[in-house]
Design a protein around this nucleic acid. Structure first.
Lengths: 98, 98
DNA sequence: CTCCTGATTCGAAATCCATCTAAGTAGTAC
DNA sequence: GTACTACTTAGATGGATTTCGAATCAGGAG
């Protein structure tokens, strides 16, 4: 595994390495119509709005979710390709580099 | 996704969220006989021995690898069950909680 | 245009993490 | 026993991360 590969992959895992972000991702993925409004994501946490916004930005920068503004609200969806790519990572071939 | 689930899972991702640890895991998984001596893991990095030892400990605490001392040397192996469990995480069901 | 609400950005405080050196433990060889 | 090697633990430090409140931006209502 090359150093730059490792760095890129570590970036994605770093985005996932937080309980709040995992729950956010889970909420977005399991939302109806596959998308969730930020306003619905803030309530379940005892965290300030800016903090939630920060975590969403981390997930967005990692390419795990994407957001869109529609009128007053911003909606986020998961990026399925990113998730399915991760799915294959732990099957031995990728780890072993074969 | 419950808060304690998220915390536990985040712990595993936190262990993976470092390029050095990803490369260590990759080296161990791709080693002959499925195990690698610490002495072989230190060379490829421009890092001190204690730093490598620290990263191995993080991987070990996350349950991703396990080590065994045989004489002078310590050998590490991956824990396959842990990896295959992670593999399934990104298929939609787990993310969506369905 | 002014006000209000939803969301993000900014700047600061507290905490966590990767890395080092120095010291300690485990085992072999003599 | 001493000496040497392999590895881990302990303590310190610089840099990154999480969180907040305050300020700002975007859009709708009056």
């Amino acid at each position: 595994m090359r150093e730059d590969e490792a760095a890129e992959l570590a970036g994605v895992f770093k985005a996932l390495a937080d309980p709040v972000r995992l729950r956010l991702l889970n909420m977005i993925a399991s939302a109806e119509d596959g998308e969730a409004c930020v306003c619905d994501l803030t309530g379940p946490f005892e965290l300030s709005g800016p903090t939630i916004s920060h975590h969403l930005k981390v997930l967005r920068n990692a390419g795990l979710i994407e957001g869109e503004r529609r009128g007053t609200w911003v909606y986020y969806r998961v990026v399925p390709e990113k998730l399915t790519r991760l799915s294959g990572l732990f099957a031995l071939p990728v780890l072993t580099g074969t």
